Computed example of a mutant assay.
Amino acid sequence: MPGSKYLSSRCSSKSFTAHVTPLVNILSEDSKEALRLACIFPLLMMPGIPQNIPLLYVLLRLYNRDKQAFLIGNYYMKLTVNEVALVLGLPNSGVPFKFTRSPLLDLTHKCLNEKLSEVTEEEWSPALEERRISLIVKYLLCMFFFPLKNLKVPACLDAIKDIQDFVKYNWPQAIHGFLHSQFDGLSKICEVRGAGENIGYLEGCSTVLLV
């Protein structure tokens, strides 16, 4: 949970689906099918996985930077791109996506929530439906795949405008790379701070690690 004295992480499947479900429920069947073909729809309907901060904390303290793996018992276990793809139900294929943190836009997570609420209404038009789909894609990227501790949206994610943009890229690979950069950084902090001490903020799709 955010605000834990040990670790903070904002990625929550329960919070994510709570915000998108009302919008998904009013989409046309054609739009839902388009989301299914892009492998997005199951993510919008995923069950709420508990945001187990104590478990994340333990796992991060077991991470070995040299082996890029977690020491579980007597074995080193790696989190692979294929495992990220399996957890999220996304293809491990497509053009590599280069995630860059800056520049950060004025667009925030709060703004995205407000934009979702604006289009969650019992009206329909081609333009409105297109806007709904675009917001769902952006919300998935910013709030679930790459949530940042400053709650702002980097320009590289805002550049993904619709499903056609989304399906071009290998998201499991991008998520995997970003998470490992987080593991490396926090494991360095773990080395100088004792058990039970705060190690900071885990950005990215921490739900993958919990699964």
Rank of each mutant, 00 (worst) to 15 (best):
I72C: 10
I72T: 03
G73N: 12
N74H: 14
Y75S: 14
K78I: 09
T80D: 11
T80C: 14
V81E: 15
V84H: 00
L86V: 05
L88M: 05
G89S: 01
S93V: 02
V95D: 14
F99I: 14
T100Q: 07
R101G: 03
S102V: 13
D106S: 10
L107G: 01
T108V: 02
K110N: 09
N113T: 08
E114D: 05
E114Y: 05
K115V: 00
K115W: 09
E118M: 08
E118R: 09
V119A: 11
E121T: 14
E121A: 12
E121L: 11
P126M: 04
L128T: 07
E129L: 03
E130D: 13
R131A: 13
R131F: 06
I133E: 06
S134K: 01
S134A: 11
L135Q: 02
L135Y: 05
I136M: 02
I136F: 05
V137Q: 01
K138W: 06
K138G: 15
L140F: 11
L140S: 11
F144K: 09
P147E: 11
K152M: 12
L157P: 13
L157G: 03
A159W: 04
A159N: 08
A159G: 12
I160A: 07
I160V: 11
D162A: 06
I163W: 10
Q164S: 15
D165Q: 08
D165N: 09
D165S: 10
V167P: 07
V167E: 02
N170W: 00
N170T: 00
P172H: 00
P172V: 04
Q173I: 00
A174E: 03
A174K: 05
H176M: 01
H176N: 11
H176T: 01
S181H: 11
Q182H: 05
Q182K: 10
F183E: 01
D184Q: 08
D184C: 06
G185S: 04
G185R: 10
L186Q: 09
S187C: 07
S187V: 11
S187W: 05
K188F: 13
K188R: 15
I189C: 08
C190G: 06
E191Y: 08
V192C: 02
R193F: 06
A195K: 14
